[in-house]
Simulated assay, not measured.
Amino acid sequence: MTQAQISQPKIKLWMAAIKPPMYSVAIMPVWVGTALAFAEKKVFDVTVFCTFLVGAILILAWENISNDVFDSETGIDKNKHHSLVNLTGNKQLIFWLGNLCLIAGLSEILAIAIWQQDPTVFGIVLVACGLGYIYQGPPFRLGYQGLGEILCFFAFGPLVVTAAYYSQTQTWSMTSLAASVIVGIPTSLILFCSHFHQVKDDIAAGKRSPIVRLGTAKGSQLLTWFTGSIFPLTLLFVLCGIFPVWTLLSWLSLPYAFKLCRHVQQNHHQPEKVSNCKFIAVKVHFWSCLLFGLGFMI
């Protein structure tokens, strides 16, 4: 596996390090929160939406970059040739590049707070950044204790969706909290799927990821329930009158959910074959959240 990674063209390693598809994790919570604001309050400030979107993407870039830095300190990425630190051989450069992304991203959110003369959105995003740091950063490294999925759920679910809604309306909404659950679950799903192919490296570095704790077989079974919960939950909220019926458009992403569960169940014990499952999870996340938000807009 390591030799195959080394032989890849440099451009492929760089693309794997940058992870462009993963940035839907930053985009979708902002989209859903904004769509819900439009549905409830009939407001849509394009400038605020675009500014928040850029800020969220930059902050996620910081998290991804800093995770490579922090992982390089534990040795867990020694076989990961698409790590930014391993590609450049310059940990300090990558560290400060990540900090620059964080400062730029927070500046975007701060601009919204200044325009609106309301620090609420900035405060919520700061809390989300704090969760992002304690996930992987020293001395906390809670991701190494198997808590990453929980932190991910709250950071990219309740916090960012609520902040995006508030940035448009300057009010609170219980519906946005319910919607944030539907966004948070598939976001955590991506992180959960990223563990299946690196069990040996995780164990060697002392990382007690959920897959290390459960084993790949039980992990694949939990994945099925985890993935499947998105759709009945959406239906439940529709039946309760919390979501409009059009949010059931998100069920059109079911083929990707079936593909993900089937792929992991068949290959959970084969690292090279299961390593791409997180990208299938990204498709589940992207399409379910895109169609979910579209349901609110309609």
Rank of each mutant, 00 (worst) to 15 (best):
F122P: 14
G123K: 09
I124T: 10
I124Y: 08
I124A: 12
I124L: 15
V125G: 06
V125R: 10
L126N: 13
V127Y: 01
G130T: 03
G132C: 13
G132P: 08
Y133N: 05
I134Q: 02
I134V: 15
Y135R: 00
Y135P: 02
Y135V: 08
G137P: 01
G137E: 02
F140M: 14
F140V: 10
L142E: 07
L142R: 00
G143Y: 06
Y144H: 08
Q145A: 12
Q145Y: 11
L147D: 04
G148E: 10
L151D: 04
C152W: 00
C152D: 11
F153Y: 11
F153E: 03
F153L: 12
F154P: 01
F154G: 00
F156T: 02
L159I: 01
L159V: 02
V160G: 02
V161N: 11
T162I: 05
Y165K: 09
Y166L: 11
Y166A: 09
T169I: 07
Q170C: 05
Q170N: 13
T171C: 01
W172F: 15
S173T: 01
S173V: 04
S173E: 04
M174K: 11
T175L: 06
S176M: 10
S176Y: 05
A178D: 00
A179I: 09
S180R: 08
S180T: 01
V181S: 05
V181M: 11
I185A: 10
I190R: 06
L191P: 03
L191N: 05
F192I: 04
F192S: 09
S194C: 11
H195F: 08
H195C: 06
F196W: 05
